[in-house]
Design a protein around this nucleic acid. Structure first.
Lengths: 187, 187
DNA sequence: GGAACAACTTGACACTGTCAAGACCGCTGC
DNA sequence: GCAGCGGTCTTGACAGTGTCAAGTTGTTCC
């Protein structure tokens, strides 16, 4: 099972092509046929590898959540404070925008995909660790949910173009200022 | 210019049909032809009224922002505190989910539409008033942006199914608890 | 009553996702 | 060395999509 017969690694190439295409026109404008053309294969090749369009986007989202977890873990390891983790959250949304645009859209992916669920759980745990909440417990952790909401809302509003130029110029500094203003950072 | 020739008020009917359709399958699965069928007109009627698909969704988003502004203004008028305004933000996302799913998606609408811009400005102002920031000023207001991010992130994560059952059971109370935990509410 | 015009319909086009069938390829077993 | 096999990808088809040009229907104004 070398996973590379004719093309080499078509699965990899298709995911890359999909990420490129999403980066150019957003996930709703994604066309399987355009992805296939970009990868230099026939129009039905993507469906063969991923089942359907949602399957391809599921693979993109899973890979995105893995990279996302890496970024959040690194921020927590290097700085050990929520400000840095939240800033990494925001930076990821900017630097890996195509991934981010797919990751939190349940209607675009197969939400029960095992690989997606695993990667999601990794991200969730990294974020939870980085927002002060140690144990999850039965009831919800208000502070952790607040930290998540703050970072996620900031990232979403930012990439949707709702923030003034001053924020776009230095998003990480802006986020830290905002987090400090809301009492999330106490130093 | 009575705006009602054959059908009565087709524009109104098409918007209602679009909202219904978005509510059932999300905005990315919206089909102009399905909307037309739902309203009982020919398949090209929506394009005639709204120019194209984005035009129809623009009308939906504009109407959404108007209702949104109404809700935020009412919450501020009746309670005068951010907790209530934020809770109204979250409730709107739940109760008028089809609108909300279109409102913050620039790639789905004509972002330069005058009616949309007007309604957006109304919402923005109502929210700004409800989050403590009185004057907008040249630089950005960190506290106001934080309040917006918190409410928006909470709403997005909630309707995307990322929160535990306890939050879904009483979203408004959960939001207030979260806002209090992040220091947004000081009473 | 006819002209001007807006509101819609009809028909067509290129494009989309998906599916069944087949062709191609590299490996295994003999 | 070669037959068979299974996975990889292609080909061809289908119904459905958004959009556009042209035509039809109805309303209003003179």
């Amino acid at each position: 099972m070398t996973d590379r017969y004719h093309h080499g690694d078509l699965r990899r190439a298709l995911i890359d092509a999909a990420v490129e295409a999403v980066g150019e026109a957003g996930p709703s404008a994604l066309s399987l046929r355009a992805v296939a053309k970009r990868a230099g294969v026939s129009h039905a090749a993507p469906a063969h590898h991923f089942g359907d369009k949602a399957g391809l986007l599921t693979a993109v989202a899973a890979e995105g959540f893995d990279r996302f977890a890496d970024a959040l873990e690194a921020a927590w390891r290097d700085f050990g404070e929520f400000g840095a983790v939240g800033a990494a959250y925001v930076r990821f949304a900017i630097d890996h925008r195509p991934y981010f645009e797919v990751m939190f859209r349940p209607e675009l992916v197969h939400t029960d995909d095992p690989d997606l669920l695993r990667a999601e759980a990794r991200s969730r745990e990294a974020l939870h660790r980085g927002s002060g909440g140690a144990g999850s417990g039965a009831a919800f952790n208000a502070a952790a949910l607040g930290a998540w909401s703050l970072a996620h809302g900031f990232a979403e509003l930012l990439i949707a173009g709702n923030f003034p130029q001053a924020v776009k110029d230095d998003p990480e500094a802006a986020f830290k200022a905002v987090a400090r203003a809301t009492g999330e950072i106490r130093d």
